[in-house]
Amino acid sequence: MSEPLVVLRDVNKHFGDLHVLKDVNLTVGRGEVVILIGPSGSGKSTLCRTINRLETFESGSITIDGKELPEEGKELAALRADVGMVFQSFNLFAHKTILENVTLGPTKVRGMRKAEADRRAMELLERVGVGHQAHKYPAQLSGGQQQRVAIARSLAMDPKVMLFDEPTSALDPEMITEVLDVMVELARSGMTMIVVTHEMGFARKAANRVVFLSDGQVVEEATPEEFFTNPRSERAKDFLGKILTH
């Protein structure tokens, strides 16, 4: 594996009595694409959100590029600027245009000049194929287009790693492909990615590793080919049996 970029050590988290993450250990190398997969309630989304502290955790440690995740305040904001996040429900800023959505971070967080931020944002919007929509508002775009804008918004911060929390789960089938295409291209460009998804096509095409979670524990880690064709654990076999029957 390449040099480790994101390292989780013995991470534990509870929601009340529910132990959602149990001693999770995970290392993601620079440039690596890791898929988090598992049944509903297995903690995969929580794990993804814990990496930029949208969820707190009780014990263990998470480091990004050697730096321990700060608890809160300005340092945490600075760290989050380096970690891109793409949500299931896109979460574009509803009162801002597409272009403003992409330039907000660079201008306010990185102190980039507006002209430069606009130029760069247009490049990114072209790259994800929504350049001609730059002056519209999020509600005027389709789900697939909104999600591609959300990816551009994250990329505008030049993140070290990008987190995707079920990026295609809220999309109509024909829009899933356009988002996955952008993600495959991103993976090929060398971006470090942690992706919560059930899209096996994407996993086979772009991922280096699949991490299978069940009941808040990492049960199995393997290459996509190995995991989908020859899972070792009973729980993974059971899970794949259910999602592959249709």
């Binding site: 300005k74 904001a77 996040m85 429900s89 979460n91």
Partner: peptide
């Protein structure tokens, strides 16, 4: 405002004050 708006604001690195003002 849906919770996702604040989460998105935080995850691009805006501080609490900036999230309030901008989003």
């Amino acid at each position: 405002i849906p919770a996702g708006q604040a989460e998105a604001a935080r995850s691009i690195g805006l501080t609490f004050g900036q999230s309030m003002r901008e989003v």
